[in-house]
Design a protein around this nucleic acid. Structure first.
Length: 232
DNA sequence: GCGACAG
DNA sequence: ATCTTGTCGC
């Protein structure tokens, strides 16, 4: 059984212990070097959850890089089975993300996630995990901290401070706009932190969150609300 | 035992 | 994540 099938099996079985062991086993595949450059496209994902039907509305949105114009999108709806457990987000969202990824006709050069990469208790957040499983460069971009310590970056857009965890620099705390709450950037897979941070900042136009993440978020919500309107 | 805890 | 109103600051 290959790694991806193993992952999906753990998700189906809601195997918490197995999930943690799986994350540890993926560490040997993780690459934190810049193995690619001149990205031509960037893809972000998001899931909107409907409480009453307990369904996940998952979307992928593929944009050109650096212009950030939409190239393609894909959507899928499925029942959410794995619970949300801090540190195991990828097992809740991963199966749907893999599906929307595979549904795309174009293959993205780079994946951008709403969540952490290596800034994680076991160094294996959703961005790193999915990057490995899909064999693509990936970046983690979270709205809040999961692990690590940091000092507040300066108030000006572009200001950065280090996110430190267990004596290691695992990410950047980035002020993506003047005076907004900072975001947390970490390497996912096949990329270095400095390049990841540069790319995320280039994706922050006039909002706090990078455009691909924001677009995915809005699309997922829109799809969920449209679906609920069909019900009534 | 207590506090922390991506989405 | 979702639920949920008004409200504070630039």
């Amino acid at each position: 059984m290959n790694v991806l099938d193993n992952f999906l099996k753990i998700c189906r079985n809601k195997d918490i212990k197995g999930a943690i062991e799986f994350q540890k086993s993926l560490l040997s595949y993780l690459c934190l070097e810049n193995r690619f450059k001149n990205f031509k496209s960037i893809c972000s994902f998001d899931i909107s959850y409907d409480k009453s039907s307990r369904k996940n509305f998952a979307v992928a949105i593929l944009l050109s890089y650096i212009k950030l114009e939409e190239v393609e999108r894909s959507v899928i709806v499925e029942k959410a089975d794995f619970p949300y457990v801090p540190g195991l987000l990828a097992f809740r969202e991963g199966p749907a993300i893999v599906k929307v990824f595979k549904k795309l006709r174009n293959k993205p050069d780079l994946l951008l996630f709403d969540g952490h990469g290596i800034a994680h208790p076991r160094g294996m957040g959703i961005a790193s995990m999915i990057g490995i499983l899909l064999d693509r460069p990936s970046i983690g971009c979270a709205k809040s901290r999961l692990v690590g310590d940091f000092t507040e970056p300066a108030q000006m857009k572009g200001s950065i401070s280090d996110l430190l965890y267990k004596g290691r620099k695992v990410g950047h705390v980035l002020r993506s706009r003047d005076k907004v709450k900072p975001i947390f950037v970490s390497a996912g897979h096949l990329i270095e932190l400095d390049m990841a941070t540069d790319i995320v900042l280039r994706c922050c136009h006039r909002y706090r969150l990078p455009k691909p993440v924001r677009m995915a978020h809005r699309l997922a919500n829109q799809v969920r609300m449209d679906s609920n309107r069909m019900e009534s």
